[in-house]
Amino acid sequence: MRLHSFPLLPVVSVVKVQIEDFDVGEVLASVRRDHPQIGAIVSFVGLVRDMNDHQSVTTLTLEHYPEMTEKSLQAIVDQAQQRWDIMDAVVIHRVGTLKPLDQIVLVVISSAHRQAAFSACEFVMDYLKTQAPFWKKETNNESERWVEAKSSDDQAQARWQSTRQ
């Protein structure tokens, strides 16, 4: 039997803001790579719901601050990579007009062991929700309204400031 020895895996992070949809399977396959140091991949996909705050939703339009958005997402991913022993990180966030069932956001994290990837994935989503410059506007047949920020999202982000993992 011959043992392969692999060099240390270079860490990759990919941050994209795009109008187009994304293929979760394709991203997972690219993160998986041919490398036996990866033991866990955690992914989160955010979707458009047809109800929010007791009102129906027909379309959801996402506005953003183009010069700041990717920089802000990259800073969040950098913090996660410093804080946990993770490998690759991919964040894709869509902008433009979406409808119920559409995918909005994807976060994929790989690591040697699952706990780091689970924690880092939650961390990235909690910071994205409270720091990245996106704004949602919902419409239905009667009206349109800007989505209000939730204090529960601020609390979710704040818990990372008081805990180490």
Partner: peptide
């Protein structure tokens, strides 16, 4: 200049200052 700041932050001539509501992405 594309970095979130608090209200005490100072800017200089030529800077880009943006104002927006609390963010609601994700």
């Amino acid at each position: 200049n594309h970095t979130l700041v608090d209200d005490l932050a100072t800017f200089e001539s030529g800077d880009e200052v943006a104002f927006f509501p609390p963010v609601t992405g994700g």
